[in-house]
Every structure is written in structure tokens, then in C-alpha cells.
Design a protein around this nucleic acid. Structure first.
Length: 102
DNA sequence: ATATTGACATTTA
DNA sequence: ATAAATGCCAATA
């Protein structure tokens, strides 16, 4: 089932982000040992199991929400439902909700 | 095998 | 503040 491809490691990592927290594409990339930040977005965009794998908790490093398969609106809705305030496409008090993977 | 593709980040203007 | 150029790299085609 779970292999050791970067993709699978990426999914496993994202699953560790606790509810009510967010991290960035950059943080995930670095935890995976790469600097191809865009690649993380590409991998998550092909998320096999949306919701089960909480990729909505991964946002841009500048606090903007970033994209989502089901639409950005859905991503914002999910984040808010987990207690994360979002205003004008940005996480409010980003630092405070940031989950460090390293 | 090579070429393109991304839900990004940093630097520069 | 915005916008463009450049770097990144596994996955996809």
C-alpha cells in the first residue's frame, strides 16, 4: 500500500498535521528534503483521498491560503471549521497556528 | 528516453 | 504595495 515514494511520504507527513494547525508547502518540502516547493503542491493536487489526507492544512508560507482541489472556498470553510480564522484569503495570526515539522 | 507540469518561494524592479 | 523572472524537482505525458 504505502510505498517510499516522495508522494507517499508527503501524504504521510501531511497526515501528522493536527486539527487546528496549518503548515506551509515549504515546510513540507524541507521536511522531505527538497527545495522544489512547487512539487509539494503538485503532489497534493493529486491527493487520492481528499479530506482523509488533510491537505487543506497546507498553505503558502506568506499566510495566503493557496489552492485546493475542491476549490479555495472549500478549503477556507474547512480551516474555519477547525478554528482557524481566515480573512481575505489569508490566515489571521498565521504564526500562531503554524505547525512545525522540523 | 525527453518535455512539460504544478495547490510554491525568493529575488529583483 | 504589485509584477515579473528565476529556481526547484518528482510526477506525468
Amino acid at each position: 500500500m504505502e510505498g517510499s515514494s516522495l508522494r507517499d511520504r508527503c501524504y504521510r507527513l501531511v497526515c501528522k498535521i493536527p486539527k487546528g494547525k496549518v503548515t506551509s508547502y515549504k515546510e513540507v518540502a524541507e521536511a522531505l528534503g527538497i527545495r522544489g516547493y512547487r512539487l509539494v503542491g503538485m503532489l497534493l493536487s493529486r491527493n487520492p483521498e481528499p479530506v482523509k489526507i488533510p491537505c487543506h492544512r497546507v498553505v503558502k508560507s506568506n499566510g495566503e491560503v493557496g489552492g485546493y482541489i475542491m476549490g479555495v472556498d472549500k478549503k477556507v470553510e474547512l480551516l474555519r471549521s477547525e478554528g482557524i480564522p481566515v480573512k481575505n484569503g489569508r490566515i489571521v495570526d498565521f504564526q500562531r497556528y503554524f505547525f512545525r515539522l522540523k
